[in-house]
Amino acid sequence: MPRLACMTSVAPETMPTPPSNSGSAAHCVGAIKIYGKGDTEVHALRGITIGFPKGQFTSIMGPSGSGKSTLMQTMAGLDRLTSGETYIGDTAISSLNDKQLTILRRQKIGFIFQAFNLIPTLNTRENITLPLDLAGQKGDVAWIDQVIETVGLADRQTHRPNELSGGQQQRVAVARALASRPDIIFGDEPTGNLDSKTSAEILSFMQQAVKELGQTIVMVTHDPRSASYTDHALMLTDGQITQEIPNPTTESVYNAIQQLED
């Protein structure tokens, strides 16, 4: 069952050889991110080396300010590291210019944000195919139809976002992330704005996408219940990974958080 490719958090200079990436969809080596300068310096990431294995559902947990969002954003190429390197597959992100990075994002990465996931002027289907359309590709129509069917939006294809419920909107976001069959999907509190019943529905669906479709998903969350849907949970504290919880349950994650606070 799930096994982390690597799970150390040592300083870059003491780093051994980079971990093998054969099994990971994305990984980072000695990731350091510092915001601000001088007195206002904030060390968001203090030298993280980690990989996200293919076909796994990983959650990144941690109190606010722990650096979990920064980790996701830098891994996804939305932000750049102060030092260290992140890789999507074998591609080192820091070597890419903005255009190459953009193209990498739309080809290899899917996103699910907490809110404002959809373009209000586009209908459901257009939102789902947006990354493909931006790339000027037609995509795999049968696959897209299947995704739409699976998320239960087949009869909502021509609706605009403002005609959909919050849960439906997030399902569109998930479907969009899946549509181009990216190497990895990043979610930033994807159920943060939803009630528990709708959250459960979305999370089950994400779980299903990993198990049945072999998708890789990394999700940032602060909610132990959400983490329980994932294959393993990483605990982040003060810019460092402090714990890994394989096959997390609500209780085990909750206990880990309690331990951290003690």
Partner: peptide
């Protein structure tokens, strides 16, 4: 925010 989203899901600056 819409523009940010477009960029995140793969719209180039030129687009």
């Amino acid at each position: 925010r819409e523009i940010g989203l477009l960029r995140a899901v793969g719209s180039t600056r030129q687009q």
